[in-house]
């Protein structure tokens, strides 16, 4: 039953308009266009469009994201999260590359090129052989290694109950010792003037930067 629009504002979206913007691809493959691409083609497209930041083997250059490697590191002190080690769904790789990559020239790849790049990323993660062809037809057969690695937010069960109620107000602990100091790392930009900030900001490769928890904002 189609009730009337309460305000009668806006107008009906045309099929061409929806097709232009409705690009998202879901884990079950909903939204995938017809197309295909193989690893070797992907290697070429990747070399032309992606390797300058992500490396020839998707291993990442400088501070740019690594797309391959890190398998088995998620419980380590310094996990390496990549498509192969961390991402749950291949649909996300296709969708994100298609809509938002290359960085600075997004939505410039054809569907076949995206299939080829995704095939190459799978290959770079040792998940397919070098003659593999990815298409809309076999897409959902690919199961990424960390597909089962995620649980739905469970803070209500694991945290909220134990951290609720009347807190301690007096004699809450015997003694207090300082265990860590930010000035030991000394990675804070100067805060006196803009000039000083520019002059004293630690370089990206400052050793202390590696001690950071994963950066707040990893680049796309």
């Amino acid at each position: 039953a189609k009730a009337d629009a309460p305000f009668g504002l806006g107008r009906e979206a045309l099929p061409e308009e929806i097709a232009a913007w409705n690009l998202d691809v879901s884990p079950d493959g909903t939204g995938l266009p017809v197309g295909s691409g193989d690893v070797m083609t992907g290697e070429e497209v990747f070399a032309d469009n992606c390797a300058v930041c992500h490396g020839d083997f998707a291993e990442g250059r400088d501070n740019w994201p690594k797309l391959a490697g890190g398998d088995g590191t998620l419980a380590d002190d310094d996990p390496l999260k990549t498509v192969g080690s961390y991402w749950p769904h291949l649909s996300t790789t296709w969708d994100y590359v298609n809509r938002s990559m290359p960085f600075g020239n997004a939505q410039s790849l054809t569907a076949d090129e995206v299939y080829a790049i995704v095939a190459y990323i799978l290959y770079s993660n040792y998940l397919v052989e070098d003659d593999f062809v990815l298409s809309n037809e076999n897409f959902t057969e690919i199961v990424l290694p960390n597909a089962e690695g995620f649980i739905i937010d469970d803070r209500a069960e694991t945290e909220y109950a134990i951290w609720s109620g009347e807190p301690c107000m007096e004699n809450c602990k015997e003694s207090v010792e300082i265990t860590r100091r930010a000035t030991n790392l000394d990675v804070t930009p100067g805060v006196d003037t803009a000039e000083e900030q520019a002059a004293t900001a630690p370089a990206a490769e400052a050793p202390a930067a590696e001690e950071a928890a994963a950066p707040a904002a990893e680049p796309a």
Binding site: N63, A204, A216, A217, E218
Partner: peptide, 12 residues
Amino acid sequence: RNVPWLTADPIS
């Protein structure tokens, strides 16, 4: 203020 070493570039 930003912290340059946090990210690979200032765009993302």
